[in-house]
């Protein structure tokens, strides 16, 4: 009883503070299904008109193509970042590598480095290698930029696995590879799941790199498409359509968060012991 009462003022404050936020989200969803008279706040009619972009490609461009591109980018991030990070993280955490400290410091610096400053250099490199305006180029660059984060996170998870487990495995007659695969990887599974989700979300939400490095129309991803929707012309600007495409774009993110929220917390909880 007393506990609940003690929490009561806190709850009120939290609700008050987050009220504007909740209102915005509420209207974001509401506006996708309704129309309001000009200048009014409350809607007066229900409509599915704003979702027409799903079948009418003239409304917001080829949404399905963009969704597919975004999915390809996001899944490629998982495919690149997770395997490389899990191997590199293990090496950094466990193996007596030459220049190990240098690598560690390098990863930290790269992690903190603002990627935007590299953009022009990357642009020239991609031009030179012929990967400019290809999805592969974007995937490689985005993957490389995300690797320091992934490696660092995975290193933290490997650090938390006791040395003795590895020693015991080797004593039991297993090779280093068997030990890694059958004994160590299962211990860092929460890390792998969390990192996969993060990599996916990072790829899903990326705007800058595809915009700059792959501006071709067949490579358009959702974030770029969304931007084109407002940048196109500002006279016939359809507010509700923009919101609806935005909601459509956000749906997978919300779904992932709902499914994996506990797993994602492990990255911040147990995973980052230096």
């Amino acid at each position: 009883m007393t506990r609940n009462f003690a929490l009561f003022p806190l709850m009120v404050v939290i609700i008050l503070v987050s009220l504007p936020l909740m209102t915005m989200y509420g209207f974001l969803i509401l506006d996708t299904f309704t129309d309001a008279p000009p200048g009014e706040l409350w809607p007066d009619e229900f409509t599915l008109r704003h979702w027409r972009f799903l079948w009418d490609m003239s409304a917001a461009g080829n949404v399905w193509m963009a969704t597919l591109n975004t999915a390809v980018l996001a899944l490629s991030m998982v495919a690149v970042v997770v395997p490389v990070s899990s191997l590199a993280g293990y090496a950094i955490s466990r193996l007596n590598l030459p220049y190990r400290r240098f690598f560690l410091a390098g990863i930290l610096v790269m992690h903190a480095f603002p990627a935007v400053t590299l953009l022009i250099g990357v642009f020239f490199v991609l031009k030179f290698t012929g990967l400019y305006n290809t999805m592969i180029g974007v995937i490689l660059v985005k993957g490389a930029l995300m690797l320091p984060f992934g490696i660092w996170i995975m290193k933290g998870f490997y650090d938390a696995v006791p040395w003795e487990i590895e020693m015991a495995g080797v004593q039991d007659g297993a090779s280093r590879l068997t030990v890694f695969w059958r004994l160590i990887v299962p211990q860092v599974k929460p890390g792998l799941v969390a990192l996969s989700v993060f990599a996916f979300l990072d790829g899903w939400g990326e705007y800058l790199l595809p915009r700059v490095l792959a501006p071709g129309s067949e490579m358009t991803v959702m974030s770029v498409l969304l931007n084109q929707l407002i940048a196109g012309d500002d006279i016939g600007f359809d507010f509700n359509l923009f919101k609806t495409v935005g909601v459509f774009y956000t749906l997978p993110v919300i779904a992932l968060f709902v499914i994996f929220q506990n797993r994602l917390m492990t990255i911040f909880g147990g995973g980052t012991k230096g």
Partner: peptide
């Protein structure tokens, strides 16, 4: 010889059981 080929059984202080 590497550990794998020595045929030694070891019990560690913290037992080092495989938790999964």
């Amino acid at each position: 010889l590497p550990s794998q080929r020595r045929n030694v059984g070891v019990v560690f202080q913290n037992y080092a059981l495989y938790p999964h």
